[in-house]
Design a protein around this nucleic acid. Sequence first.
DNA 1: TCTGGGGTCCTAGGACCC
DNA 2: TCTGGGGTCCTAGGACCC
Length: 373
Amino acid sequence: MAFYLHIDMDSFYVSVERVLDPSLEGKPVMVGGGSGRGVVTSASYEARQYGVRSAMPGFQARRLCPDGIFVPGRLKVYSEFSRKVFDLLRSFSPDVRAFSIDEGLVNLTGTERLMGHPIRTADEIIGRIRQELGLPSSGGLATHPTLAKIAATKVKPRGLLYVPPGSEERFVGPLDVSVIPGVGPKTHRELLDRGIATVAQLLAHPRLGPRYLNLDRPADSGHAHEHSIGSETTMSKALTDVAEMERVLGGLVEEVAARLRRQGGRARRVTLKLRYSDFKTITRSRTLRTPTCFDVDILKVARDLLARNLAPDRAVRLLGVSTSRITTEGWQDSIFDYRERASMDQLYKGIDRLRHKYGEGTVTLGAGKNRPH
DNA sequence: TCTGGGGTCCTAGGACCC
DNA sequence: TCTGGGGTCCTAGGACCC
């Protein structure tokens, strides 16, 4: 019998902040959104009582919860805690999948003889995350990964819910379709319009049932998903000046290309994202003949796409650069191209070392940064 | 007082090829 | 003379997740 434990950290960023500053315990705390601009990325359960939700604009959160404590986010610190959580999970099973910084799936199939019934193991895992790292979490244990996730969401916070084999449909059937991962507000509305409100009703539908929840398929056998690396930023003030936009673009490209190189990947596709001040958002992409991980190549495409999509009196509030179709294979170019690129490779390795040593932004390339014409 | 940033997945039309 | 049909690649947009 297969057993999957889905672990979901409770208001993860807030919980980490509380480990580092116990005086935040029991208070309405929000991470992010405090500067007036931006959104709340994590809200404590006390703050949620005021109606604050994650992804809510900061000004709205402040209006709902004026006495709440706003903490700026520290992603590096949270990542470090996340790593410790997953290290702990991996000490219980070799098969652990990270869905995000604060959610993971532990395959407990076959651990019974060694560790006892999975429900005891699940309880021990949650207990040790609490004792050793000081972090509250919730768990769902089921024979199917999606059901495990739904169960964990259901018992939040600080809960553990077991869906015994044979009771899967009894558990999930009466629930609202919106509990299914992948069914967001839009799909929820569409399903309701078709008279489908519960999971049982959805499962009874021959076409839509399997599309959103397939309990017959044992586990997602991890198909080759497309990988992308990107960076975007919302400007503190919408820009109309092309030179300023290109400067921002240069910084984004530097970051993206450095991450690409760190992973040993090269991208065949470059995508520019623009959000105008009226919030209309477009993406424009181009596929390259030769994959690249170099700033100059990516920036050239990004600048060109930008130039083609600027309207004279249309201010831009967000700029983003993303790379995709990433390969990690060796060069496939002609020998001349190879030698030229190999030396470029050396140059960039040096630059990455310097940046690592002296900090980002200390070593910049001419292209994009106040580039002379 | 306006609406973050990191992603994945799906759909749909058009180009192009055989 | 009234427009095949399948496969693959490229591009854009949008839903959704944390």
